[in-house]
């Protein structure tokens, strides 16, 4: 499959990029691992691509004054996964970055690209020729969903691995547009609508990712379950940030974020509430895991039933809490707390 023709530019500044992106039918090119597939399939045929990797410093990882991290969107997933700054204190982000299309995609794809990943489904992500006889679905501008007959919304899955850990850590993103900058929690970046997954507007670029310093006595885990050991999306991804009271070992706070189970990254709020303020024991772990599975409503996508997804959510949540708990007991969590 050949790429369609497009105009191509390499802006030198963010401002330049934004004004290019404000023009009709223009897409950001970063790693290209999602975009170029869609272009080859003619799933989308934008008029112009704007390569943001030409903008200086957009691939930097820096410590911020408040002890957090600031990561440029053009940072490759491999750079994020191997950077000591990320690995040492935000290990769950490094794990997730390395797991995206493991082992090769991380060398090409960027963190910003993963955050801006579009929803995926077996009907939308097909070639134009494949779709000849299909009426357009919500995501293609139509009024129906092929995955769930009769559904009143798009059910494309949000599958980006790095997002659940970043939300668990309370990350923020900066959106730069022709009219200036907006900062928002990453959690709010997502609309929950499969057809338009995030709030980016024409002329806007996701220009920075900030992760605050992890709370004292916190520890994080990202677990991904996929059907194949490599080159695969998650069936379920579970990120957990667990903060433990150093005095009595109770759970001070827990943030549980699930990927690949809905049209957006999903906080398992009932599970979080169950853990918060409680003394950790095996019974609590099981309760939280069961709640996480119950409070989600996954849709059966090809080859993976909703029932199976629930089972995996339960299992991974259980394992994530146990692992974080073990790490906390071993004192290997955030250095602010334990060192």
């Amino acid at each position: 499959m050949r790429l369609p023709r497009f105009e191509y530019s390499e802006p030198g500044t963010l401002e330049e990029a934004c004004s290019l992106l404000a023009q009709a039918d223009t897409k950001v090119l970063a790693g290209g691992t999602e975009l170029l597939v869609k272009l080859k399939q003619k799933t989308i045929t934008p008029r112009a691509l704007v390569n943001i990797k030409s903008i200086p410093h957009l691939d930097r990882i820096e410590e911020t004054e408040d002890g957090g991290l600031s990561i440029g969107p053009a940072t490759t997933l491999h750079a994020a996964a191997t950077s000591p700054l990320v690995r040492d204190r935000f290990g769950l982000v490094a794990e997730a970055a390395a797991a995206v299309g493991k082992p090769r995609i991380p060398y090409m794809a960027t963190l910003g690209g993963n955050l801006c990943l579009d929803g995926r489904c077996f009907y939308y992500n097909q070639s134009l020729l494949w779709k000849q006889s299909l009426p357009p679905c919500y995501k293609d501008g139509g009024h129906l969903c092929h995955v769930v007959q009769g559904s009143d919304h798009c059910n494309a899955l949000f599958v980006a691995d790095t997002v659940p850990p970043l939300i668990a850590l309370g990350a923020e993103v900066t959106l730069t547009g022709v009219d200036g900058e907006t900062r928002m929690p990453l959690e709010d970046f997502y609309t929950g609508r499969g057809e338009e997954v995030n709030v980016l507007q024409p002329g806007q670029v996701l220009s920075r990712i900030r992760i605050p310093a992890p709370p004292p006595y916190s520890t994080g885990v990202y677990l991904k379950h996929s059907l194949r050991e490599a080159i695969d999306f998650a069936v379920v991804g579970v990120a957990l940030l667990l903060t433990v009271s150093p005095e009595d070992g109770t759970c001070r706070d827990a943030r549980v974020v699930l990927g690949s189970v809905a049209t957006r990254p999903l906080r398992a709020v009932a599970a979080e509430a169950a853990l918060r303020g409680k003394a950790l024991d095996e019974g609590l772990v099981r309760t939280a895991a069961t709640l996480a599975a119950k409070e989600t409503h996954p849709v059966s996508h090809l080859g993976v039933s909703a029932t199976y997804k629930r089972r995996v959510i339960e299992t991974l949540t259980k394992r994530a809490v146990r692992q974080a708990w073990r790490q906390a007991v071993a004192g290997s969590g955030s250095r602010e707390g334990w060192r």
Binding site: F122, Y123, Q126, W130, E229, A230, I231, D232, F233, L302
Partner: peptide, 17 residues
Amino acid sequence: RVVNPNLVDYRLPTALD
């Protein structure tokens, strides 16, 4: 319709499988 006509969604065994 074949809904997985590509080598990402049609999972061939890798060296880890």
